[in-house]
Amino acid sequence: MDSDTFVYTTYIRTTPEELWKALTDPGLTRRYWGVAFETDWSPGAPMVWEEGGRRTADPGQVVLAAEPGRLLSYTWHTFTPAWADAVGLGHEVYEGLAAEPRSRVDFAIEPSGDTVRLTVTHGGLAPDGTIKELIGEGWPAIVSSLKSLLETGEELPEPPR
């Protein structure tokens, strides 16, 4: 796995508009992801990540593209010691994450019959880096919970750590 990109695709029985709302509305993102974003979703706008009462703000966290119902793209969050402690990562793992390049995530939304095809592309990763390893497990779980929320009204329970 020497690629600098992770790609995950799923089909969700929803509309592009409802999927966009689920990707951008803090009340919904908090339900299936545990994260809320403070931003106006315009290209270039700063993003503050709020997770478990912790706020992460950094000038490098920005919206890259926002086309409602079609495409959402932003830079990945800054790793802080408080975040690492909260998610149970040791100091060495945190130091490694903090040294990796800032990555980006793109959500491509495409109508597909009675469903919507969602492709999550997380690029700019260190090919053998820790971030790539973590998102390789994280994105499938997050997207599965998003899919469940949109199709059933209930997000998946958080898996044990």
Results as ranks from 00 to 15, higher is better:
K132W: 12
D106H: 09
A36R: 12
A98D: 10
R55H: 11
F107N: 11
T119P: 11
S42G: 08
G129F: 05
A65E: 14
G136N: 04
S148M: 06
E38L: 13
S144T: 05
R70F: 07
G52K: 06
M47Q: 09
L64K: 10
Y94L: 11
P59V: 14
I142W: 08
H91T: 15
D40C: 13
A57S: 09
Y94G: 10
P46Q: 06
L71I: 00
P68N: 01
I131P: 08
M47W: 12
V143P: 11
I142Q: 09
R70W: 04
E133R: 09
G138Q: 03
S148D: 13
T39M: 03
I109A: 00
S103E: 03
F79V: 11
G90Y: 03
S148I: 08
T121K: 08
R70K: 14
E51I: 14
V87F: 00
V63A: 01
V143K: 00
A66C: 14
F107M: 02
P43Y: 11
G90L: 05
V120D: 02
P111H: 01
G138C: 01
L118I: 02
L118N: 04
G113K: 08
Y74T: 01
G124H: 12
I131Y: 15
F37N: 11
T75V: 09
E51A: 14
V62G: 08
G52E: 12
A99C: 12
A99T: 13
G113V: 10
E92Q: 00
A36E: 08
G34L: 02
V63H: 00
R70N: 05
W83V: 15
S145P: 03
K147S: 15
A108G: 14
T115W: 03
S144Q: 07
T75E: 12
L118P: 09
T39A: 12
Y32K: 00
R31H: 15
G52C: 13
A141Y: 01
E95A: 11
S148V: 11
G96I: 02
P127Y: 07
T56K: 10
E38T: 11
D85P: 05
